[in-house]
Amino acid sequence: MSGVDEAVRPRAAAETAPRRTLRGRTGGNPLATRRVNLLYLPALALFAVFTVYPLVQGVLLSLTDWNGFSRDSDFVGLANYARLITDAAFHTSLGNTLVYGVGSTLLQQVAGLALALALDRPLRGRALARAIIYLPVLVSPVVMGAMYYLLFSYNYGGLNDVVVALGGERVAWLSDSGAAVAIIVAVNSAQFVGISMVIYLAGLQTIPAEFHEAAMLDGAGYWRRFADISLPLLQPAFAASVVLNLIGGLKLFDVIDVLTGGGPGYSTSSVSTLISTAYFDNRSAGYASAIGIVLFLLIAVATLVVDALLRRRRLGAP
């Protein structure tokens, strides 16, 4: 032992020793020995074969020109990624994906919070209203999409029935790219607004009534109490709801596939639907893999950034 070592060690020992005895590795549980780790091996084995291996394989495939079915393929380096930079279909899909993600998130926060505030007061039929607004959350987006198709269809749609009855011309709701993108955002938001609503309702119910009573004694009106009491205390609910809606919107696939199939052309396509088009329709599995990796990175970065932003603000909240 050298002198330097001895000079450093006592401090390190003083820091680690009490932790060992207080918390220990087993938390004081005599059965939590190393052998207990065997219990997560089945889960890890499944993840290794069916998630991690495909992810690694996806990175490797993205460097090839594999067509999805033939035995051989060539290494093409970063050519697939270079293609993303010039591919107009990818640019449209990426733009739409951001609109789906951000648009749905905004719409669901506004509508979800408004519905939660409306339902957080004594009102006849409150339980029924909550149950109905929440119902679509449990229905498959494909089935909701199929039912909404009946509303927006050109020849037989319920919406055009109203337009015609009012003396207007039939509107091609789903063939007009701008309208179709907006409809997809609206349909996705309407389907999942129930999640935001119940998250905010649960958040509102954790706020002690005394806070509002005290503020009322001080003469604070409804909006003042909302802004100064409810809103800051809803920060955790806000964080949970935003992260959930944003991820859901960014990986949107089902509704688009049923309502427009990504068309006309690629005008309503998302990054997710572009992957399936590239793989199954265009026989470009290598390119589809590259888009898959980009989608993964997009969602990972968005989640981490939003989570970090909201978590930091959560700490600053009262």
């Binding site: 998630t51 999805g68 991820i247 992957i275 989608l295 993964f296």
Partner: peptide, 20 residues
Amino acid sequence: GIVALIMIPPLSILVPLYSL
């Protein structure tokens, strides 16, 4: 590592998972 897997969108591993 397991929590990080939550972020993987199913479509991003579609090609390799389908061929596997």
